[in-house]
Amino acid sequence: MRSEKSNRAPLSLKIAAAAGLAFMHLPILLIFLYAFTTEEKSYQFPPPGLTTQWFGVAWDRPDVWAALALSVKVASIATATALVLGTLCAAAISQTRFFGRETISLLVILPIALPGIITGIALRSAFSMADIPFSFWTIVLGHATFCIVVVYNNAVARFRRISGSLIEASMDLGADGFQTFRYVILPNIGTALLAGGMLAFALSFDEVIVTTFTAGQQSTLPIWMLEELIRPRQRPVTNVVAMIVVVVTFLPILGAYYLTRDGDQIAGASK
């Protein structure tokens, strides 16, 4: 009886929890709501009328498409770079012992702990000093710094669970380094890489601060939205794009969540 009672939360706690969740998520619903408003100059509540015309307007705006294409390209290349470098780094840190191993591990994770503005300023002054013109590639480099961390963190956790004797067993049975990677390591870390890659993509896709410092004339989608908010023209278009961004970043994160959960079961080898 008593344990049953203590499992049930008091009403006040339930209300507090609901209020917390509402505080976090109602503003997002408002963004969705204003994507359908007929008022284009201000965020008037309640909206005077509802329309779907902004979807068509957004579709016809070439600047939206340019920004979206740039964001997707940057996120893809930054993620691909991070997958290669992050995996290699995780393999080195988890499978070998060498002088300075802990230090390197810390230095790899540091970019995500540093405020983005520091990373941004540091990269910007480094690019200027080296006379590298700001371009698509400087954005990719900036994003790769934190994408690597995400991939590394996922991969290193999985690597730690692969017993060293699996790799030795593969070598013992006649597989060289590449075959061992292809047939033993990759199947065991595959889901972790996919999850890390998806998170990295989502992070890169909505990054503003580092991008501000490392981009030249180009606008990624988040930068475009920031600029658009200042202009009082066709405001709901921004909301339409915001909805798309939510969907595009939310789906990979959800996917990553489910994949790593399944990965636990695979690696646990219980079934």
Binding site: S163, S165, L166, E168, A169, A175, D176, N188, I266
Partner: peptide, 17 residues
């Protein structure tokens, strides 16, 4: 190891999960 005509049975068996 992959060019030796010896094979090992590992203490933890090291089967590929």
């Amino acid at each position: 190891p992959y060019r030796r005509s010896v094979n090992t049975v590992f203490q933890d068996y090291a089967l590929f999960p």
